[in-house]
Each structure stands twice: as structure tokens, then as C-alpha cells.
Amino acid sequence: MSGHAVKEFKVTWGMVIDLDKCTGCGACMTACQVENNIAPMADASNKMRTLSWMLVFELSNKKAAPDAEIAYLPRPCMQCGNPACVPVCPVVATDKNEEGGIVSQIYPRCIGCRYCMAACPYHARYFNWEDPIFPKGMEKALSPNTSARPRGVVEKCNFCHTRFMKAKDKARQEGGNPEALADGAYMPACAEVCPTGAITFGDLKNPEHKVHELAKGENAFRLLEKLGLHPQVYYVSKREWVRKLGDNYAATGHAGAEKKHS
């Protein structure tokens, strides 16, 4: 069994996240929660039960004080080119089939078997442990962009897909080309809110979009690239220790190109 082929699209939405600019402030997580109607949790410190479609990891260079350094790594869904989660779903509740290359999640279809969670090495998929019960009145502040999911289904980041649809609608109304949106015409909530602009979002295949070049930068990398899942989310950092934490190099001890599994 040699995995599945990478699915190619004319438009490939992706992110380039500059880890040297992310302060870990959490605005992206908040904006994501607001946009996607995730109910507040009584004990959000139990990270084994939270729903964080966007999660900011803390990376450490593991050096003792005063040489310690940290970096923050926002982790949305990687929207893999060769997703581990899609082929395993028994009921086609997740798919990568639409122009743009976003891995969908169809909540009314999902049976909650969590096989996709077991498949995803990025922990980007979350099981909805409890019904989305908002404190009284707060349901009036629900975003119109994402339906609330019942408990028992798996959910994840979809690059704020409704915004994609709206951007395409807008382009159509304005006589533009919905298949070639301008840079910035479509922007997920996290990228939009980020106060340091650490998240650049756009079409990786479109030379007019900033991400096109940024993803090819010498300091750009993807998480766990050797697993061959071809994430559409890129990271950049000038710090070597940060780049080294993007993948596993234990077998050789050094970073760099090696046999990549596909």
C-alpha cells in the first residue's frame, strides 16, 4: 500500500505562518472560536477535551535559562494535499474534492467514529464531546457563518469555508472571476485578526498571491513533511531550532532533505 496520490487543484488555498512574528497572543484562537460558534467550556484547561480548531502550540529550544527560547506555532487544519483523514472516513463525511483544496467536514453526515482523528498526526481534528450549549443569551451572538454542531461528531478547521463561498459570490456579483480571487479577497478569521500579520493566506498556485513566493522561501517548511501528507499550511522561521522542530530527524540526527515517504 503506497498511500494515495496528492490531489491537484488549480486553486490551492494555503497559509504561510511566520513563526518569528507569532507572539502567541491567542487572538487567532478567539477569532476562530467566534467565527465557528464553538461554545465556551467550563473547564478549558482540560486540553484533552477542548475544541480548538486553531491551536497555538508552544515550542521550546529546551535550553536552560538564560539561553531558553520559545516560539509559538498556530496549528489550523493542514488541508493536506494527500490527507490521511479523508480516505479512512467510512461515510464520506470528509472530502477533498472542491477547487481550492480545502478538506471538508460534513457534520450531518459524520457518525463520530473518530477514525479520522486516529489518522491525523497533527491533532487537527476534534471530537465534539458535548452539545454546544451557550450561556443564556449568548446564542444571539452566534456567527451566521457556521452551523452549531451536535455532540458526537468530529469537527475541524475548514479555512472558514463560508467566507470562501461569500468571496466567490462577491466576485461573481462584481463581474470578477470567482476562480481567480484577488489576494486578500478571501481570508479566514485567524489570518484576518492576527495583530502581527503572522498568518499570510492565499492561493499557493497563484503567482499574484503573496503565499505563492513565501511558501518557496528558504526558511519555509511544513510539519511532518516526511510523512508525505503534503500540507497546504507552510511555516517560516529564521531560527534553525524552530525549523528542526517541524519534522522528525531522529533517524539521521540532522535536518535536511532525505527520503520522503509518499
Binding site: 494515495h4 461515510v91 464520506v92 453526515r109 457518525i111 463520530g112 451536535p150
Partner: peptide, 18 residues
């Protein structure tokens, strides 16, 4: 499974690759 009522979806919406 999180949605026992949908247990039969495996037949109704089968993913032949899974």
C-alpha cells in the same frame, strides 16, 4: 460512535476507499 442514530450511514453513504 458519537452518533449512534447514524450507525446505518455506513451503508447509506459508504466510502469505498475506507
Amino acid at each position: 460512535i458519537g452518533q449512534p442514530i447514524r450507525a446505518w450511514f455506513g451503508y447509506w453513504h459508504p466510502n469505498v476507499h475506507s
